[in-house]
Design a protein around this nucleic acid. Structure first.
Length: 700
RNA sequence: GGGCGCGUAGCUCAAACGGAUAGAGCAUCGGAUUUCUAAUCCGAGGGUUGCAGGUUCGAUUCCUGCCGCGCCUACCA
C-alpha cells in the first residue's frame, strides 16, 4: 500500500519537473516526516534544486505544490519549514483499501533465487553463531517468498574437511572406537554433543604433541580419497551430526531443500571442470618460484591491476617470520606427507610473475590438492548452471510437515527436482569469510561471467560472541585480558560456546514456567505448545533485532528476556487484539474482511482526522508499511528493519489498546472503527511476524 | 604492514539515499488501569554521536588525518 503510493508520488513529481523545468533527476528522494502531523511523505528536493534553478528553496517548493495538481490517493501537498514538500495521504481511502486487503500487483523479477545458509561443519553440535546464520538466512528466504520470488534453500555440507577429520581422529586415536561402537554411539539422542566434547579434546591432544597432527593429515587424506574404512566412518559420523543439525533447525521451523556435500564436489570431479575453465581463461597462474612455488594461484580479490615488482625488504621480513613461527612445523608436516594428486599440476601456460607474492591466493596446493576457495568456485559455477556437470540427488530428510529435503550423491535417484541454474544467489556467510567470497566473485568475473557476478551477494554478518559474564557463568576460566573485553569469540575448537539446543531448551523451560503460572486451566500439552512458540519468538527476534554488522555480545539475561523489545512483546500485542474479538464474540479474520466494509472511506476519514485521529492514524500507517519494509529488507539484505517494524506496530498497538477501550465503546460507529483498527493491525502484525518465522499463540 | 568493519545515553542497540527537536529497550526512580489479562502503559533523569579538520543551506551519516577496538591477511575450511 504505502510503497505503491510512494511510487505514484515519485512518478508525478518526476513528470512535473520534466515538464516545468526540463529537468530529469535520476532519483527523487522521499523521506518520512518526523511526525504524522506533517504528512506521510517528505521531499527535500527543493533544496537540491535551489542551486540549479537559482531560486530560493521555499519558492521552488511553492511552485511545485501549486503546479503539480491532484494526485490520486493524496489529499494535498504543502510546503513546510525552509522548503520541504510534505505530502498528505487521503486517510479514509487508505484505511478503506487496507481493510479490503486488496493484493496490489508488484513486478517480480524473473528467475529463481538460491539462498545458501547454515553450512555448519558436520563434526559437532550447532552453537549460537550458527543460530544467527540460520535465522538470518531463513528470514531472508521468507522475505523473498513474501515478495513473490521462487527460492531454493541450500545448506552446504563440508563433510570432507579438517574439522570432520579432527573428530574422526578423536574416535579412532583417542577413544580407539570400532566402527560398530561408533555406529552405536550415533544413535544416542544428542550425538552432536558427544562430538562437541570430543572435538575439543582432539584440539588439546594436538597441542600436547605436534606429532599428533600426523593423524589429522592422514585422516583427512583418507576421507578426501574415499572408498576406505576411515572414509566410511567419517560418512557415518558426519551424516549423524548433519541429521542432528536438521533436527535442531527444525525446532525453529527452518528447513532446507537441498544439501550439496563437498564429497560429491570431489568425487564427481566438479573441480576438474572448473579448473579447465580457469586455466583457459587465464584466471589461474602457475607459480614457479618463491613461497608459492608449484601452486596454482589467482590474484587476491581487492588487489587492483598489475602490481609492481616492489617486493623487497618487506617480503623478506615476512618470510623470516614464517620460518621461525610455529606454523612452519605444520607446513613441513603438510609437505612431508605425499598426497594423492588428483589433478594435473604440470605448468601449462604463463607464470604468475604478474602478481606479487603477497597478492597471490593459492587455489591449488603444490601437492595437487585443491583448497576450499577452488571447490567453492566450482560449486558456484554449478549454482549458476555454468559448470556443465550436475549432482546426483537422493532423498535425505522428510520433515514432519511433509517437505522433502534432498542431499547430493554420486549415484542419485532418477526422479528429483531441478536444483541450481538460478538467476541470483545469496550466501549467508559470516564476515570473516568475505575475502574468500570476494575471490569466488572475482573468479567468476575473470571467466567472463559478469552478469552472474553481479547477482552474487555475500550476505555478510558479524559473529555472535559471549560476554565475559556469560563465559564465566558457563564455567570457563578467563584470563585477565579476556575479562576486560566487551566480548569473547566463540571457539568450537576449544569447546567454548553456547550450544543451540541448550539455548532453545532454556528458553522453552523459562517460557513454560511462565505459561504454567498464568494459565493453570490449560492442559500441559497446550501449555507446552505455547511455551515453544514463545521461546522461538524470543530467539528468532533476538537474532534479528541487531543489524548484521553488529557483533552480538551474547548474554543469557538478555536472550531470555520476554519483555521490552522482544519477540514475545510482539506476540503479546497480537494476543491482546485476539482477546478483544474473542470477548466480543467476533471472528477477527472475517471481520477484517467483511465486518469492516460497512465503514465507509468517509467515515474512516472522520475518525482519523484531528489530533486524536493522528494518534490512531499512526498505527494504520505503520500497518500499511509491511510490504514496503520487506522490499527494503531485500534491497539492503537487512532483516533487522522488519524486526524494528514489527516492534513498532506492536508498540503503537499497545498504546492504542490502553487508550481506547473497544468493547465498552458506546458509539456503535466508532466501535466498528476501533474494531477495524484492531483487526487490520492484528492481520498485518501476524504477517510481519510470519516473515520472521514467528507464530503467535492463542493465549499468553 | 595491507584489507574490511566498528566507536552514539550507565548497559545493549536504532537512526534507508546527507535532512526537521539523534530514538528504542534494559537498568534506576516515580506513577497508572476494581475495565478487551500488567509478558502492558505513562512520566523523569540520562548525549560535545571517539578526537581534530574539511566538503555545504544542512553531517551520527560523505572526505582526510589521528586515537581505540574487532575480524581477515596460512599451500586451514
Amino acid at each position: 500500500m504505502y510503497r505503491h503510493l510512494e511510487r505514484r508520488l515519485t512518478e508525478r513529481v518526476r513528470d512535473f519537473l520534466r515538464r516545468t523545468y526540463n529537468l530529469d533527476l535520476p532519483k527523487i528522494v522521499i523521506e518520512q516526516p518526523p511526525k504524522v502531523e506533517f504528512g506521510e511523505y517528505a521531499l527535500p528536493l527543493a533544496f537540491e534544486l535551489a542551486k540549479k534553478l537559482r531560486k530560493a528553496p521555499r519558492k521552488i517548493a511553492e511552485e511545485i505544490v501549486n503546479g503539480i495538481g491532484a494526485i490520486e490517493g493524496f489529499e494535498k501537498l504543502e510546503v513546510a519549514g525552509a522548503g520541504y514538500i510534505n505530502a498528505r495521504l487521503n486517510r479514509g481511502e487508505v484505511a478503506a483499501a487496507l481493510v479490503a486487503d486488496q493484493k496490489l500487483k508488484a513486478e517480480i523479477p524473473p528467475g529463481k533465487v538460491l539462498v545458501e545458509h547454515s553450512s555448519i561443519n558436520p563434526n559437532k553440535a550447532a552453537h549460537i553463531g550458527h543460530l544467527r546464520n540460520a535465522i538470518l538466512g531463513d528470514t531472508f528466504v521468507r522475505l523473498l517468498q513474501f515478495a513473490g520470488r521462487q527460492v531454493d534453500v541450500q545448506n552446504y555440507i563440508d563433510n570432507t574437511g579438517v574439522q570432520v577429520a579432527d573428530v574422526i581422529v578423536g574416535f579412532l586415536h583417542l577413544e580407539k572406537k570400532s566402527r560398530a561402537e561408533i555406529e552405536q554411539l550415533t544413535r544416542q539422542p544428542r550425538f552432536d554433543y558427544y562430538c562437541w566434547d570430543l572435538y575439543a579434546r582432539v584440539s588439546q591432544w594436538y597441542e600436547q604433541d605436534k606429532q599428533n597432527q600426523r593423524a589429522r593429515i592422514e585422516t583427512l587424506h583418507a576421507i578426501e580419497q574415499g572408498g576406505n574404512e576411515t572414509a566410511a566412518i567419517a560418512d557415518l559420523i558426519s551424516t549423524a551430526v548433519l541429521r542432528r543439525h536438521l533436527e535442531t533447525m527444525d525446532r525453529l521451523d527452518i528447513e532446507y531443500d537441498f544439501l550439496p556435500r563437498e564429497s560429491e564436489i570431489l568425487h564427481l570431479h566438479f573441480w576438474d571442470a572448473a579448473f579447465q575453465q580457469l586455466k583457459e581463461k587465464g584466471v589461474l597462474f602457475y607459480e614457479s618460484q618463491g613461497k608459492n612455488k608449484g601452486c596454482w594461484v589467482m590474484r587476491r580479490a581487492g588487489v587492483a591491476g598489475k602490481s609492481e615488482t616492489a617486493k623487497s625488504a618487506k617480503t623478506d621480513a615476512k618470510d623470516a617470520k614464517h620460518d621461525s613461527g610455529k606454523a612452519s612445523q605444520e607446513d613441513d608436516l603438510l609437505r612431508e606427507i605425499e598426497m594423492r594428486s588428483g589433478v594435473d599440476i604440470r605448468p601449462s601456460s604463463e607464470p604468475a610473475e604478474g602478481i606479487a607474492e603477497e597478492d597471490q591466493k593459492v587455489i591449488v596446493r603444490s601437492n595437487g590438492t585443491v583448497g576450499y576457495v577452488g571447490k567453492d568456485i566450482a560449486y558456484h559455477l554449478w549454482k549458476f548452471g555454468l559448470l556443465g556437470k550436475d549432482f546426483g540427488y537422493c532423498k535425505f530428510y522428510l520433515y514432519p510437515n511433509g517437505h522433502q529435503c534432498w542431499i547430493s550423491s554420486t549415484n542419485g535417484e532418477p526422479d528429483h527436482p531441478h536444483f541450481g541454474d538460478v538467476a541470483e544467489i545469496y550466501n549467508v556467510i559470516d564476515a570473516r569469510q568475505s575475502e574468500a567470497q570476494n575471490s569466488v566473485v572475482e573468479a567468476l568475473r575473470g571467466l567472463g561471467y559478469n552478469e552472474q557476478a553481479d547477482h552474487y551477494t555475500h550476505f555478510s554478518y558479524e559473529m555472535v560472541a559471549l560476554t565475559p559474564r556469560c563465559a564465566a557463568e558457563l564455567g570457563y576460566q578467563l584470563s585477565e585480558e579476556d575479562s576486560a573485553r566487551s566480548y569473547i569469540e566463540v571457539s568450537g575448537r576449544k569447546g567454548f560456546g553456547v550450544k543451540a539446543d541448550d539455548l532453545i531448551d532454556r528458553l522453552i523451560a523459562s517460557a513454560k514456567s511462565e505459561v504454567d503460572a498464568r494459565h493453570p486451566q490449560l492442559t500441559d500439552a497446550e501449555r507446552a505448545t505455547i511455551a515453544i512458540q514463545i521461546a522461538i519468538g524470543a530467539l528468532r527476534y533476538f537474532m534479528l533485532k541487531f543489524t548484521k554488522q553488529s557483533v552480538i555480545a551474547f548474554d543469557f539475561k538478555e536472550a531470555l528476556s520476554f519483555e521490552g523489545e522482544t519477540g514475545p512483546y510482539c506476540q503479546y500485542a497480537v494476543v491482546r487484539a485476539t482477546n478483544i474479538f474473542r470477548k466480543g464474540g467476533v471472528d477477527p479474520d472475517t471481520f477484517s474482511r467483511d465486518g469492516a466494509r460497512p465503514v465507509s472511506a468517509a467515515e474512516f476519514a472522520k475518525y482519523l482526522e484531528g489530533e486524536s485521529g493522528n494518534e490512531i492514524w499512526e498505527l494504520w500507517l505503520a500497518a500499511a508499511k509491511t510490504s514496503y519494509v520487506v522490499d527494503q529488507c531485500i534491497a539492503t539484505t537487512e532483516p533487522a528493519y522488519l524486526a524494528k517494524h514489527a516492534f513498532q506496530i506492536a508498540q503503537l498497538f499497545n498504546y492504542f489498546y490502553h487508550r481506547h477501550p473497544i468493547l465498552t465503546e458506546a458509539d456503535e460507529g466508532r466501535k466498528r472503527f476501533l474494531l477495524a483498527t484492531a483487526a487490520v493491525v492484528r492481520r498485518e502484525l501476524i504477517r510481519a511476524l510470519g516473515v520472521m518465522g514467528i507464530t503467535v499463540p492463542p493465549v499468553m
